[in-house]
Design a protein around this nucleic acid. Structure first.
Lengths: 116, 116
DNA sequence: TTATTATATGAATAAGTGTTCATATAATAT
DNA sequence: ATATTATATGAACACTTATTCATATAATAA
């Protein structure tokens, strides 16, 4: 490694990177959060909930698939605080956890030129 | 499904969700993009490149691991247009693809209360 | 040309993940 | 209490994915 034209700047960037690298715990948390929203069936759930809160029956209606599969995905999203739940009688009503979720989805859509 | 207190609104939300659901292709592209940034080793690479462009040697230095493993991860990030590459002599210099990448990382950090 | 340096990649293995099926829990109705 | 409705969950299987090892390519130097 002596021939790169920008060797010196790269070495400084690497040094800064080592100083400013988030902790392993933060990296793991970020990875888990992104993993939670990186599966098609879970993304569909999020886009569905973007239209407003819904109970499981309607989520299944909106995104397709079996009740069991949707329920498993809801748990993953909930465990990662991407969505939240409240009980209403026999139903569990789900909604997006906070505005960050929508913001990230919209940013990614813009990045990829997806229509919303 | 007749007992939920908000049955009617949920049904409307589900109906809107079906109309406004992104195409399967867009969902797949979004899922792939999030999957690309949902692994600890790849996230470390992104946080490293946040400090500026770097060639592989310095990325390996900044994030640890073997050259081969880093190279495989770089390909995944590149295939998903999260990072871009240019050749400089014998070196390949990598950098973040665009501002969206940093924006998404920062949003997620705020969501999870990670320090940057 | 041959050697060296920088980076990429195919194959293999090990670990992780999504769905299905069957069943469990929890609330309500009879 | 029993039945019904809504949702959740454990286990199993198929599929995917990250890393390692060995090797390939690409640029440059001698």
């Amino acid at each position: 490694m002596k021939n790169c034209e920008h060797e010196e700047e790269h070495a400084y960037a690497a040094a800064r990177a080592k100083c400013n690298m988030p902790s392993d715990d933060d990296i793991a948390a970020l990875a888990a959060a992104f993993k939670a929203i990186s599966e098609p069936s879970r993304l569909k759930i999020l886009f569905a909930l973007r239209q407003g809160e819904m109970c499981v029956y309607h989520i299944v209606d909106a995104v397709g698939g079996t009740q069991s599969a949707v329920s498993h995905q809801l748990r993953i999203l909930r465990d990662n605080r991407v969505i939240k739940a409240r009980r209403d009688g026999q139903n569990i009503v789900y909604s997006l956890a906070d505005a960050h979720v929508v913001a990230v989805l919209e940013l990614a859509c813009r990045h990829l030129n997806c229509k919303l």
